[in-house]
C-alpha cells in the first residue's frame, strides 16, 4: 500500500506542481481532492487483500466512511476492486467514474472522465501503461487501449487503440501515431509537462 501511495505522490509532485517549495510538496498536495481519493482507493484495495477476518471488517468500515466523503464530497468514484498500477494520478475532481477496470502504470485522469461499461459489452475496458485521459473524455465498452496513449479532451473512445497514439473527437479518431511524451518525461529526456 505505502509503496503504491509513494509512487502516486511522486508522480503528482513531478507532473502537476510547478512550485517546488516545501509547503507545496508536503502540505498542499494533501489538500487536493484527487490525492485524497487516490489514497482512499489504495487503502481500500489493501483492506480487500487482507486475510484476517475481524480486522478486515473493522478497517473496511473506516474505508466506507472515507469513501462517502470522496464520493459525496468530491464526486470521484474509484472502486477498491479496480486493478490500477503504480503512479495513478487524479488531477482535479467531480464527475470522475472509473469501473472495475484493468489499468496499467502511470495513468493520469482529469475531471469528468468516465471509464465504464457499454450496454451489451460485459467486459470492462483494459488500459495499458502511461495512459493520459484528458478532461471530459469517456472510455466505454470492452476496448483495449495500448501503451503511451493520449486521449484528448471531450473525446469518446468506443474502439480499440494501438500503442503510441493520440486520439481525439467523437467517436475518437487517431490523429498521431508517434505519441511518446509520457515515456520521454518518465526517462527524464523531456522537461515539458
Amino acid at each position: 500500500m505505502f509503496d503504491n501511495i509513494r509512487a502516486d505522490l511522486h508522480r503528482k509532485r513531478e507532473w502537476f506542481l510547478k512550485e517546488k517549495s516545501w509547503y507545496v510538496r508536503h502540505v498542499r498536495i494533501f489538500l487536493e481532492p484527487g490525492t485524497f481519493a487516490v489514497i482512499v482507493y489504495r487503502y481500500g484495495s489493501w483492506v480487500n487483500s487482507l486475510r484476517i477476518p475481524v480486522l478486515k471488517q473493522l478497517l473496511y468500515f473506516f474505508y466506507m466512511l472515507a469513501k462517502i466523503v470522496v464520493v459525496l464530497g468530491f464526486g470521484i468514484y474509484v472502486p477498491s476492486k479496480a486493478r490500477i498500477g503504480k503512479g495513478f494520478t487524479i488531477h482535479n475532481f467531480s464527475g470522475i467514474f472509473i469501473c472495475e477496470a484493468d489499468i496499467g502504470e502511470n495513468c493520469i485522469v482529469f475531471q469528468g472522465v468516465t471509464v465504464g461499461h457499454l450496454r451489451g459489452q460485459p467486459k470492462p475496458p483494459k488500459l495499458g501503461n502511461n495512459v493520459f485521459l484528458g478532461a471530459g473524455s469517456k472510455v466505454l465498452g470492452s476496448v483495449n487501449l495500448g501503451n503511451n496513449v493520449a486521449v484528448g479532451a471531450n473525446s469518446v473512445v468506443v474502439s480499440d487503440v494501438p500503442d503510441n497514439c493520440t486520439v481525439m473527437g467523437v467517436p475518437a479518431r487517431v490523429i498521431s501515431r508517434e505519441t511518446n511524451w509520457i515515456t520521454e518525461k518518465l526517462e527524464g529526456r523531456s522537461v515539458e509537462y
Partner: peptide, 11 residues
C-alpha cells in the same frame, strides 16, 4: 475555497 469545492464542485 476548499469547502466550496467540496460542496459545489466549482473551482
Amino acid at each position: 475555497f476548499y469547502f466550496t469545492q467540496m460542496l459545489t464542485g466549482i473551482s
